[in-house]
């Protein structure tokens, strides 16, 4: 059974049936077989968080899951965040954009997926809760402040509050 196994999964809402070798991580399956290179691989042993995706709506390290384990699962990657028809960005993408959340953005897909999972559970998190929830994602550029700002901006956008830019300006002054 080290031969490829055929699995079926939902990837960003679309069904996919694909052959996968048992040793292939879900991250490599997504990137190399499905061509969805938005999911990034940093450490490949579960420490950096760059490869975080949603499996059945819950955040998972895609480098710590085998492709074969995704059989029958509903997978969401960074490519699945924007509206598939209009292309309109997800509130978390808008929030990060507004707050200039990232610099090099290598870590961005993992942060965004972690933040999406957080906001699903807790639409109005405190800054400490955001910090705690994103604690498993590593960024080497920003010092994290702008990323936390981006999540807060997303919260404002989601709740239809258009004063987020003002809030950010106040935040900068602090």
């Amino acid at each position: 059974m080290s031969e490829p196994t055929v699995i079926t999964m939902l990837i960003n809402g679309a069904p996919a049936t694909i052959e996968v070798e048992p040793r292939t991580s879900l991250a490599d399956l997504i990137r190399e077989e499905l061509g969805l290179t938005g999911t990034h691989l940093g450490c490949e042993h579960g420490v950096c968080g760059a490869c975080t995706i949603l499996v059945d709506g819950e955040p998972v390290r895609s480098c710590l899951m085998l492709g074969v384990q995704a059989d029958g699962k509903n997978i969401t990657t960074i490519e699945g965040l924007a509206d598939p028809i209009s292309g309109e960005m997800h509130p978390i993408q808008k929030g990060m954009h507004e707050a200039h959340g990232f610099q090099c953005s290598f870590c961005a897909p993992g942060f965004l997926m972690s933040a999406v999972a957080l906001l699903e559970d807790n639409p109005n998190p405190t800054r400490d809760q955001i910090r705690e929830e994103l604690g498993g994602n590593v960024c080497r550029c920003t010092g994290y402040k702008t990323i936390l700002d981006g999540v807060e901006a997303a919260v404002s956008i989601k709740s239809g509050d258009n004063t987020s830019s003002t809030n950010l300006a106040a935040e900068v002054d602090r």
Binding site: M1, S2, L66
Partner: peptide, 11 residues
């Protein structure tokens, strides 16, 4: 950083 090959069984 990639797992070595193995035989996979899913009972």
């Amino acid at each position: 950083m990639k797992a070595p090959p193995f035989e996979y069984h899913r009972p």
